[in-house]
Amino acid sequence: MNTEESYEIRLKVNGKTQQITAPARRLLSDALRGELGLTGTHVGCEHGVCGCCTVLVDGAPVRSCLTFAVAVQDREIRTVEGLAADGGELHPVQEAFKECHGLQCGFCTPGFLMTACALIEQNDDPTEEEITEAIAGNLCRCTGYQNIRAAVRYAAEIVRSDKT
């Protein structure tokens, strides 16, 4: 039987560098969930449509199901597990999604949280249009988008009030 070629892959996730051994075809989403046990990143459609697997690479939201782990070595990867502080204090986007009922079943939530996190880190006073545009690539099938938009708006408010 042919054995598939393995690669030593250094992944820097939530500030911690870890080495995994995986084939080149290992998607970042599967490396995070399988090799690193970070199952907060969800896998929905696996072809870049649903947005559940969104993580940040060097601060920018990307689809981890459309990214090979081997191709993002040494880049700064952030997942939903990296949002809350070590003591368990929720990140503003988590706090806001909780407050505004921005989640119901929670399957799409990690993707929305990371997308919202990237938005408010770039711009803590987004317009309604900017919020809608930012989350347009994420699908939610149960909560509905109104509460999610309200949550993003409120997350930005928390960030602004934390600064003052």
Binding site: G48, T54, V57, A60, V62, R63, T115, E133, G137
Partner: peptide, 9 residues
């Protein structure tokens, strides 16, 4: 072209 998340890569 697509969404920001796709345009980023």
């Amino acid at each position: 072209i697509a969404h920001e998340v796709i345009r980023n890569r």
